[in-house]
């Protein structure tokens, strides 16, 4: 199977042997086991997603939803409007770059800190974990406001401290320049999402049997070589899962951008797709167009993830 195996190569073999074992009624049992999740997902996910596609083919706004105006079938008109809008392509490019930066930074910071934690003593490590869990536990909205407050031009700590060090930053706005605003949001995103990666990778590292690493060292492998050819392959499935989740989360970022750049920044310079969809379609009650953006985003994410999964498989 092409999806990243969570346990390297194992599950397929094991389930196959289970199949030859005492239980032979897998189909029916599977149905039974899947039933609770399937009922919920079919009832509350599958149908709305199907409706999303249907809505994207109609001129559908608040008046249509409340039944005050007739439905008009548009076919692919909403998609044509969207793909013909030059702003959409700008925003798409910005979103891809922004999400890529966030994913890479999150993975690097998370992995580096996991390695650091595995080298440190129990007390510093526990403190690091508590701090990271705190960042992770902070609700998105709360976290966005806290960071915004830290960097506020008038009341923020950062400007206050930097200008007392002699830098001309009193009253400096961190959200006025496009890159500075994106950078600030990216920092907040890394802050609240690296803990997931760190905890995952740390647990992966501690699960590697000591003998494996020691054996490599005895064979004369350098530390770098041990890391790349012994530790990394074991961690790869975990990293793959963490990366896929990060891609999905960061590509769909909404709250941080919306709160921290005031709905998309000066003249819309900090729009990403999800905020663009909100501003362009949902806030203006053009649900048909909004649904089309949603479908396009899903397809894009699927393509990106698919590419990533294939790239993973091609590696030796």
């Amino acid at each position: 199977m092409a999806l990243p195996p969570v346990t390297p190569a194992a599950p397929a073999d094991r389930t196959r042997s289970a199949r030859q074992g005492p239980h032979r009624d897998d189909g029916r049992a599977a149905l039974l086991y899947l039933a609770p999740a399937a009922v919920v997902l079919l009832a509350l996910m599958a149908y709305p997603i199907y409706q999303l596609v249907v809505i994207s083919l109609h001129d559908y706004g608040q008046a249509q939803a409340s039944g005050a105006a007739p439905l008009v079938f548009l076919g692919l008109e909403n998609y044509r409007t969207l793909l013909g809008d030059p702003q959409f392509w700008d925003v798409l490019a910005a979103t891809v770059v922004f999400a890529a930066v966030c994913v890479v930074a999150t993975m690097l910071v998370g992995t580096a800190l996991a390695v650091l934690a595995s080298r440190a003593g129990p007390v510093p490590r526990t403190l690091l974990f508590l701090a990271a869990l705190g960042a992770w536990a902070t609700p998105t909205m709360a976290g966005s406001y806290v960071w915004l407050f830290l960097f506020d031009q008038d009341f923020g700590l950062v400007n206050e401290v930097l200008s007392s060090l002699g830098l001309p930053l009193s009253g400096h706005s961190w959200t006025f320049e496009r890159l500075s605003a994106f950078g600030l949001v990216a920092a907040e995103i890394v802050w609240c999402s690296f803990p997931f990666v760190m905890v995952t990778v740390y647990a992966g590292i501690t699960a590697i049997p000591r003998e494996v690493v020691e054996a490599a060292a005895l064979d004369g492998a350098s530390a770098v070589r041990t890391a790349t050819s012994v530790v990394l392959p074991i961690l790869r499935p975990l990293l793959a899962i963490a990366t896929i989740q990060s891609i999905i989360w960061d590509f769909k970022v909404f709250t941080q951008i919306y709160v921290m750049t005031g709905g998309g920044g000066v003249a819309g310079q900090n729009l990403v797709l999800n905020v663009f969809a909100y501003q362009k379609a949902f806030a203006g009650e053009q649900y048909g167009l909004g649904a089309a953006i949603g479908v396009v985003m899903t397809v894009l994410l699927l393509a990106v993830t698919g590419l990533y999964v294939r790239a993973q498989r091609w590696r030796p």
Binding site: Y50, Q64, L71
Partner: peptide, 23 residues
């Protein structure tokens, strides 16, 4: 993926209308 996309498109083409309140 192809099956999933085709499935939903086919469903949409069958022409179930979007939800509307009855006013």
């Amino acid at each position: 993926v192809a099956a999933a996309v085709l499935g939903s498109l086919a469903g949409a083409a069958l022409g179930c209308a979007p939800p509307q309140a009855n006013s």
